[in-house]
Structure formats: structure tokens, C-alpha cells
Simulated scan of single mutants.
Amino acid sequence: MAARIEHLVTSGTFALDGGVWDVDNNVWIVGDDEEAVVVDAAHDAQAILAALGGRTLRAIVCTHAHNDHIDAAPELAEATGAPVLLHPDDLPLWKLTHPDRTPDGELADGQTVTVAGTALTVLHTPGHAPGAVCLYAPELGTVFTGDTLFAGGPGATGRSFSHFPTIVDSIRERLLTLPPETVVRTGHGDSTTVGAEAPHLDEWVKRGH
């Protein structure tokens, strides 16, 4: 059975630079009836466990280390034995949330995470966070972008560890070069496609998010 994509929305708070915001996060589960990986273990480990339904969890992949994307990762890892994987450039952010527990493995540009015979290729896309990554699954016609690219523009770059010119370069060079029909599955809100977002790059640059 080919891998499928399942979607869960969990709710909690995002905290950085002294501010706290209520947020809804997209949790993506990629796999088949036997095994899966989770992209961003946000807020509610028990809800994610319920969605997994006893399948073997191969990995917990973090698109970046803002607390709202990783707060449930240690609990989910403890419950399943799955490793938590994070790009090392995001360790300073990780430690703000989990000072006493490090990730179990590193993500690197070009690395592949395979589940149910389907490869997810790691694209290092800094800007929203230094170690932000996207996961491209050509067989599924999709890219999981975390908070790098949303329906309507780049992720926020107004807080610590972020940089607007860098996120624009990441999107231009790593995401908008993917096939236009590629579905963009985001960290918050609705999905979009590469083709729908590509024409608006110059507008984003002028707005300067």
C-alpha cells in the first residue's frame, strides 16, 4: 500500500521574545497501515497517538524548533520510541522549550526520510528559523513547508532567529523551483500549491514582511 497523508489540527500557544499567542497547528502524518512519520508534533501528543492508531512511528520530523511545533515531541517520542529529528541550526530554539532533552538525530539538506516506501527529501530553508526545513515528497506530489511558505506568502520573520531576505531566497531557490502542481502543506492554515504562490514573489519582497 502506498503512503498516504493524514492531517490533524492541534491547538495551543506560541511563545517567543516574551509574547504568547494562541495558535492552531497542522500536524501531518505520512505512512500506510503499518508505519508512519509525524511532521511537527504540536501541542497534543495524545491526539497524535490516537491518530497513529498503533502504527509503528519511524520518526518525528521537526520542520523547525519554535515551541508550537515541538512541544509534544518528547512525550510522543517517549510513548512510541521514535526518534526526534531536527536540523542542528535550530538547537538554540529547541533549548528554549526543552532545555533538558536534546533531539535524537539531525536533519541535513538532501537527506531522505523513508516511510512506507516513500522518500521525503529534506530541503534546508532557513529564514523563519535558522534550521527550518521543508520535506519534499515527489511521489506524493507534495511539500511540507512548516512555517516557511504559507498560502499567501512567507512565514513571519519579525522575531528572534529569523531573517526576511533569507526566507525569500529559500522560497525562491528551493520551493518555487518545484513542479507548479506540487501541493504545499503548511504548518498553519490552508494548503496551497507552488504554482499559486510563485507569481507573487515580487509582491512579497516589496511588502517586506
Results as ranks from 00 to 15, higher is better:
121 T>A: 05
47 A>T: 12
148 T>C: 13
25 N>G: 02
108 A>L: 11
152 G>S: 03
113 V>A: 00
69 H>P: 05
129 A>V: 07
40 D>M: 10
7 H>Q: 13
72 A>T: 02
209 H>Q: 12
38 V>G: 10
30 V>N: 01
115 V>R: 01
19 G>F: 08
11 S>G: 05
90 D>M: 05
41 A>F: 11
10 T>L: 06
12 G>V: 00
50 A>V: 10
3 A>H: 07
109 D>K: 04
160 S>G: 13
174 R>F: 01
35 E>L: 07
122 V>E: 00
205 V>F: 09
201 L>W: 03
99 P>V: 09
114 T>G: 02
189 G>W: 06
4 R>C: 04
61 V>D: 03
192 T>K: 05
53 G>T: 09
130 P>E: 14
157 T>Q: 07
205 V>T: 07
113 V>H: 04
59 A>K: 10
45 A>W: 04
34 E>K: 11
172 R>P: 02
208 G>Y: 02
64 H>V: 00
191 S>N: 09
161 F>K: 00
3 A>Y: 13
183 V>H: 01
148 T>V: 15
106 E>L: 01
64 H>S: 10
166 T>W: 08
75 E>K: 13
34 E>D: 15
73 A>L: 04
97 T>F: 09
13 T>V: 15
128 H>I: 01
141 G>D: 08
204 W>N: 06
2 A>E: 10
98 H>P: 06
9 V>I: 15
127 G>D: 05
22 D>S: 14
84 V>K: 07
159 R>S: 12
103 P>A: 06
133 V>F: 00
88 P>W: 00
109 D>R: 05
161 F>C: 04
17 D>N: 11
56 T>C: 07
93 L>N: 05
50 A>I: 03
8 L>P: 12
46 Q>P: 00
157 T>S: 14
32 D>L: 05
146 G>L: 11
65 A>Y: 08
60 I>D: 04
101 R>N: 10
154 P>Y: 02
113 V>N: 00
11 S>H: 14
76 L>P: 12
63 T>R: 03
88 P>I: 00
79 A>C: 12
30 V>H: 02
112 T>E: 13
31 G>L: 11
55 R>Q: 11
